[in-house]
Design a protein around this nucleic acid. Structure first.
Lengths: 334, 334
DNA sequence: CAAACTTATTAAACAACTTTAATAAGTAAT
DNA sequence: ATTACTTATTAAAGTTGTTTAATAAGTTTG
């Protein structure tokens, strides 16, 4: 080693991630608390935290009350140590939001949609934001299409982006770690994060849409993609003797309620999810009880999911933030 | 340290499990192959393998052909180093099968059903088998009810076992690690293992039954249990305007084919599974094409699962064996 | 308020892996 | 057969964690 630093740890990513997570989840922690909750030894917790304090990543906030002996020093995370960028690629426009580790907005804006144009306009945008905000360390991209491991597989009306590895493209052009996710999948992850549901929950998030319904589905805490990225295409569920779910939706209030009730009954019998979430703008709180009633005609009430009406855009954003935060937390900054 | 052994490793369970898995999957391996495929250093692979050879767990089978330099020594796993026991708790009888690490049968037998009686008769049986077969190191129990982490939550007509922690009971009474799983869940896991599907597959295994249908469902390689252990209760899926899947099944050949087609369409739209498997005794190979045809009326063919007719009892057994093998592989024998 | 106790932190010894260097056992060409 | 090369194995150092011991900083009690 050529430099004269005394503390030096190659920063085990699992431990770094654990400390950051605990510090952010609990607001603050002592070395002993970190050691206990992460199942690492006290000296290890101490070394990592000391390093983080030197870098300015962790900040001491004084001492705990004594519990009979020497008082423990307490630390918190600097939520502005790094920032993340969420970008919504939509039909009409491209929105972006820069956020800190607590999910607080730093800056936001929008541009004309990038979907009809070249992806290099996207990396240009990210490059400009990076210039202005050197703390930027992650990019989360939400797209209206099927995504697997950063590659877009299906994206109706934007053939140009089909089979395009957007994640690698952005990472190489910007030098920032990126994550790409489908809009409804991001929304369901965001709902789970915002509602603080337990990890490994099973949740269905339904969006009715003008161009037909779709759902984001998480089972045991993991996004379901399926064999041909067709999962969540609930438009095709044959809820009636003639006509599928999409068709039934078009036939007025009563048929719609019945169709949704049957869809819930179907998912309850197959997946038995903990939650079934609607876009509040489409299905308000007042509709939940009537819908539940219809579903209960098919499946015993105790096995039906809890219904919820939530704000889709907020959940979508929370999902992209949560995915970006995941990248921030496991970073092993040089 | 008081004994004079030269080699001594506290047997890191992850490494032990990895070496055993590779050795069994590939039939044999060299130290360099283990090091590469497990991402551990060569010296570590060597130390663990040497220890295993001393214990008789691994066996040297000579040297590889030279690839230009010194020849590498090749090792295989002794499939009879430890044995597992699978027990099927069924209505009419209790079957058991003792097997080795390759899944080969060592001994099998049956007794009157234990479900109407006390669980201690089960531990007595295990105790007797353990006496006769000292290599026994794991017990897998298949039960016709909903199970979560070893506890039976729902078990129709055997109230005595409801909310009973069968896993802990067996582990404490016999001193053997145990795993408890529902019959259809075990079957779907067994199918995945026998068909060598890739990990993280999504598969639905349908059983029609006399007392109504049920399914075992695996998503992304993990068993789906749901919020109230109701997942897979496809009897309740409202496939028609009046009447659910169970009712439609009762109305003759044509209605049955249509109902199954709709169920497949529903699961395809929701989960988009890779495989949809039938019990060969109920739905033969010849029925697969007509059923697929019906499903294709609702969902584009490329998004439908591959249909298969398989032997349910064999899959069930394979599932219990696979779960038991999991216990055997991660054991850190004293 | 000083001894006895509690709890937090730091330091030293230990453990188990990885990396690098040395040695062993081959092959191929002269 | 000897030299040059290749690959496997073993040995020695180096890393990064854990465990145990020592020290620091409190509280409580006679």
């Amino acid at each position: 080693m050529t430099d004269g630093r005394l503390t030096s740890q190659p920063a085990n990513p699992a431990i770094m991630r654990g400390i950051r997570t605990v510090l952010l989840e609990r607001g603050s922690a002592t070395k002993a608390e970190l050691s206990r909750s992460l199942q690492i030894s006290f000296p290890t917790a101490g070394k990592f935290l000391d390093d983080m304090e030197i870098r300015g990543e962790a900040i001491s906030v004084g001492y705990d009350e004594s519990s009979g002996g020497r008082r423990a020093r307490r630390y918190r995370y600097d939520p502005d140590y790094v920032h993340g960028l969420a970008i919504f690629l939509e039909k009409d426009e491209t929105r972006y939001l820069l956020f800190n580790c607590l999910g607080e907005a730093i800056e936001q804006g929008y541009e004309d949609s990038i979907l009809d144009e070249d992806a290099s306009r996207l990396t240009d945008l990210i490059g400009r934001i990076k210039q202005a905000h050197p703390k930027l360390r992650s990019v989360s991209l939400g797209v209206p299409g099927a995504v697997n491991d950063g590659t877009i597989f299906l994206i109706p009306s934007y053939e140009k982006y089909r089979n395009f590895d957007l994640k690698s493209f952005v990472q190489q052009r910007t030098g920032l770690p990126a994550v790409v996710e489908n809009d409804m999948n991001a929304a369901v992850l965001g709902y789970i994060a915002r509602a603080k549901l337990e990890d490994r929950s099973t949740v269905v998030y339904l969006y009715l849409g003008q161009n037909g319904p779709g759902a984001g589905i998480v089972v045991n805490g993991e996004v379901v993609r399926g064999k041909s990225f067709f999962s969540g295409e609930v438009a095709f569920v044959p809820v009636r003797d003639r006509g599928n779910f999409a068709e039934a939706l078009k036939e007025g209030e009563s048929a719609r309620t019945e169709a949704i009730g049957r869809l819930i009954a179907s998912t309850a019998s197959i997946l038995n999810p903990h939650y079934f979430v609607f876009n509040k703008g489409e299905i308000g709180e007042a509709m939940l009880e009537p819908i539940l009633e219809r579903a209960a005609a098919y499946v015993p009430r105790e096995h039906l999911p809890k219904l919820a009406a939530s704000e889709l855009r907020g959940d979508y954003l929370a999902g992209l933030q949560s995915l970006g935060l995941g990248l921030l937390l496991s970073q092993t900054d040089g």
